[in-house]
Nucleic acid binder design. Structure first.
Lengths: 213, 213
DNA sequence: ATGCAATGTCAACACCCGTACACAAAATAA
DNA sequence: TTATTTTGTGTACGGGTGTTGACATTGCAT
């Protein structure tokens, strides 16, 4: 039987590839941008000679796309976990907020990368991120459709409400990431505020439904 | 009487300074970033030799800060105009949306710049933008406090609601700027969606108030 | 063990960068 | 006018950049 093209070999292949991606993520924290990084800089940080870079990526843009992919793959994984745990419905919001923020902190570099490149990245990277966010929003919309109190709402309006929630999440994410390291107090304030905002959105969504239905 | 240090002379001083700022704004559209621009490139676009740059700005970061300042100065001006026109209260929202979007289109380059540098710019530029947005949000909060139906809401909650509205605005802005040039149809859809979202927020705010008051 | 593909290294290239310095032109102040 | 300040020019430097091509090393399949 042939080595089915996916179970090929990867001896140290994985290692430097990972090293390059990690180096890029670290450097995005130090420098301002992914676009501001240079191929040579990333290679140097990864402990490898510049030309070795080409063995794994044709150019920096491809590395960026790989990072986008990885970022949203981990995010999707979180969503799957959250969905699988049956919700106590009552304090679902508070808890969701907490676990989400913890997750952001745990994967800060990926979120930083996405937040920064979302608008300032190369066209390819920007559209990739936009696509992922669109998809994420749609998934959230179908999640919302399962709530009994929203089952009268049209698909388009569900999408709109999901957009509101995603806006709220991204805003919270970016604020937390911009926070000076260990300011736990301010972080709590941001979370509380985002929580209130989410509550306002929900109240509005309910009023909206009763207005239409 | 001495030339009171502010009424000095400005012969062509203004001209190249403007040319540099305009060049930077144009180049931000073409390149991905402000950070991605080089002093030499900006000078070249402005039709001036690299060393002349230093006559007007000590470095690129200062140019960026000047652009931030200018961007929000024009935005504040718009807000002043909007505030001065007495509102028909009924369809204030629809009209505000339209004029705001027209304004964004008219000053697209400035908004592009802010959207891109908000998270990916140099620390100095990032904090400058954040400060401006904070200020803008506070002003909006006091505007909201003047609405009769919200006069029971605490200052902190007003700030929170203003944050929601600003989030909505920035999201709409960024989506419109990312739109492929003249897609009027999609633009209308985005505006309608943002309008609905704003309506949801307002409904939520009212429900919030009645819940508290 | 041998051969081959994958991976990494080295040296070199032409190019763009920020900035320093000395000097020319222009505008203002007296 | 003349003197002075502001603004723009030309040259040069050291250093970082992406990419090429030829070569060494590694690991796997046979």
């Amino acid at each position: 039987m042939e080595p089915s093209t996916e179970t090929r070999r990867d001896p140290r292949r994985g290692r430097t590839r990972r090293a390059l991606m990690d180096a890029a993520l670290e450097l995005v924290e130090k420098k301002d941008n992914f676009t501001a990084l240079s191929l040579r800089l990333v290679a140097r940080k990864a402990g490898v000679v510049p030309t070795a870079f080409y063995r794994h990526f044709p150019d920096m843009d491809s590395l960026g796309l790989a990072l986008v992919d990885e970022s949203f793959r981990t995010l999707r994984q979180l969503m799957r976990e959250v969905r699988s745990t049956s919700v106590p419905v009552k304090q679902v919001m508070r808890q969701s907020m907490e676990t989400y923020v913890a997750y952001v902190r745990a994967n800060a570099r990926h979120f930083q990368f996405v937040a920064k490149e979302r608008f300032s990245g190369s066209p390819a990277i920007r559209t990739a991120i936009r696509q992922e966010i669109r998809l994420f929003t749609s998934e959230l919309a179908t999640d919302l459709s399962r709530f009994p109190m929203l089952n009268q709402v049209s698909a388009e309006d569900l999408q709109m409400m999901a957009g509101l929630v995603v806006n709220n999440m991204t805003s919270l994410t970016e604020q937390i990431l911009d926070l000076p390291a260990g300011d736990a107090e301010e972080e709590q304030f941001l979370i509380r505020t985002a929580e209130k905002q989410l509550r306002v959105i929900i109240l509005g969504a309910l009023a909206w439904k009763s207005r239409v239905g």
